[in-house]
């Protein structure tokens, strides 16, 4: 059973937040506030009884429950429900994870009411909405490119450079350890770290990449 396209419910463990949202929605006659809940089981019972509302405003830290996990479940169970996360958390990883798990929008609790209306209308068109503060945070957090491909050169630590220099001078592991006053074990760790950072399969590959990329030139 599906409720009209302008009904909103809230799931948040804070009474104050639930009340504030109810008041805000009551002022806008385009939307109907149809319920506030503080646990997921309350919400699910409501949906079974009274139908699926158009929008759900969903908190992430819900006492014992995790809003993102809940979002995933609800998305599967009620594909028509538009879920907007409403939280104080702004970390890029959390935002991305929420969207990945089916959230249609990500709203911050420091919102202005106008932002809520904008969010709801964007989300109802089937698009994804992010609070403006988040767009800046997400902008620089794309994959930082850990692979050796795409011409990206990972940053080497000073110690790794020292070890690499000595490898290029054809020193053995034992000799490198003696020269740098570190244990053989540590040298091996640095060497394997270098190889995986630079994407080399063996020492020959490591030497080849070092020369090609001019890693020790600077």
């Amino acid at each position: 059973m599906q409720q009209p396209d302008n009904t909103i419910v809230v799931l948040d463990d804070h009474l104050l937040i639930r009340e504030a949202i109810e008041k805000i929605i009551a002022e806008n006659t385009s939307y109907i506030f149809s319920g506030a809940f503080h646990t997921s089981s309350e919400l699910k019972n409501y949906i079974e009884r009274d139908g699926v509302p158009a929008f759900l405003l969903l908190d992430i830290n819900l006492g014992n429950e995790d809003g993102i996990l809940l979002c995933k479940q609800l998305r599967k169970q009620y594909p028509g429900l538009k879920i907007v996360m409403l939280t104080g958390l702004t970390q890029a990883t959390i935002v991305k994870n929420a969207i990945k798990n089916g959230a249609n929008g990500f709203m911050l609790k420091n919102m202005q009411k106008e932002e809520l209306w904008e969010c709801l209308s964007v989300v109802s068109r089937g698009e994804t909405w992010l609070h403006k503060d988040l767009q800046q945070i997400l902008l620089g957090s794309g994959n930082s490119g850990q692979s050796a491909d795409n011409g990206y050169t990972p940053k080497l630590s000073r110690r790794e450079k020292e070890v690499l220099e000595l490898i290029m001078k054809e020193m053995t592991t034992q000799e490198i350890a003696n020269t740098l006053f570190i244990s053989v074990n540590t040298v091996e760790t640095h060497r394997s770290g270098l190889m995986s950072k630079l994407g080399a399969k063996n020492i020959a590959g490591l030497v080849k990449i070092t020369i090609e990329k001019g890693l020790l030139d600077g």
């Binding site: 504030a20 805000i24 104080g88």
Partner: peptide, 18 residues
């Protein structure tokens, strides 16, 4: 801070905006 103060502040802000 997050659950207590954060929640109250968020609610306060919503109320004021209203």
């Amino acid at each position: 801070l997050h659950d207590g103060l954060g929640g109250i502040l968020a609610a306060a802000q919503m109320q004021i905006s209203n």
